[in-house]
């Protein structure tokens, strides 16, 4: 029996990942800020799939949150952990605007919290000699824009951190994978008029769970975002600065 911890499991991609992992026989610990959502999802997965599935209410964006205590809690519930997935985080309506303090929250939720989790769980997995850490970035990391500057920066920082962590842990049997997501049909994009097709959370989850069985590195989902972000990277600034996206 395999085990996994999903952080940000109350909705969207996180909830879809929890369901996908339960379908594939994983025992789970689900983590998010809202207990009612977690309790409902955990009950549903336990009843439908018959595996161990519990939840921990935690806010990984809090500075005083103890990742060490959290790791110990997960180990006591699941035993050795095979997989950590952190699809937590999110945008703020205007993180370049009037209130510079918004940058704190965006950085903590999208970079500091996931990076602390990856470091703690990655080290525990390295001691066993196997495991995988899956972190979630965004196409915004490669194509920063005026509406979510801090978010783009936080995701870029997470990608850089993940690359370094992979460098440190791959030789010890731990894979570190970053998934760069394009548009996904979640509350973040609901009601928006978008230029490119939108991915369903369950399709993202299927892709991620398959990818987590392979080597670490970085993957794009949907695949065509690799081409788009590559193009955006090589665009001259004079052209890029005129884009409104």
């Amino acid at each position: 029996m395999s085990s996994a911890v999903v952080v940000g499991a109350s909705s969207g991609v996180g909830r879809a990942l929890a369901e996908r992992l339960a379908t594939e026989g994983f025992d789970l610990v689900l983590v998010a800020r809202d207990s009612r959502d977690l309790e409902a999802t955990a009950s549903d997965l336990r009843l439908r799939f018959g595996h161990r599935c519990s939840f921990v209410v935690a806010d990984i964006s809090r500075v005083d949150w103890s990742v060490t205590a959290f790791l110990a809690e997960c180990l006591s519930r699941l035993g050795p952990i095979d997989c950590l997935m952190v699809p937590a985080g999110g945008v703020s309506p205007d993180d370049l605007g009037a209130n510079p303090d918004v940058i704190n929250g965006v950085s903590l939720g999208n970079f500091v919290g996931p990076a602390r989790l990856a470091a703690a769980f990655g080290r525990a997995m390295a001691e066993r000699g196997r495991g995988s850490v899956v972190l979630f970035s965004s196409i915004a990391a490669a194509a920063p824009r005026r509406r979510n500057a801090a978010y783009s920066a936080a995701k870029a920082a997470l990608e850089t951190y993940a690359k370094a962590l992979r460098h440190a842990l791959e030789s010890k049997g731990v894979q570190v994978l970053v998934i760069a997501l394009g548009y996904v049909d979640t509350r973040q994009s609901y009601g928006m008029r978008l230029l490119f097709p939108i991915a369903r959370p369950d399709a993202v989850a299927g892709f991620v769970v398959r990818a987590a069985r392979g080597r670490g590195g970085k993957r794009y989902y949907p695949w065509f975002w690799w081409w788009i972000t590559t193009l955006l990277r090589v665009l001259p600034w004079r052209v890029y600065s005129r884009l409104s996206f």
């Binding site: 109350s10 909705s11 969207g12 809202d34 959502d37 979640t186 509350r187 609901y190 009601g191």
Partner: peptide, 10 residues
């Protein structure tokens, strides 16, 4: 107008 909440908080 259609809303599609995903969480109890929403």
């Amino acid at each position: 107008d259609v809303a599609r909440p995903e969480r109890y908080g929403d």
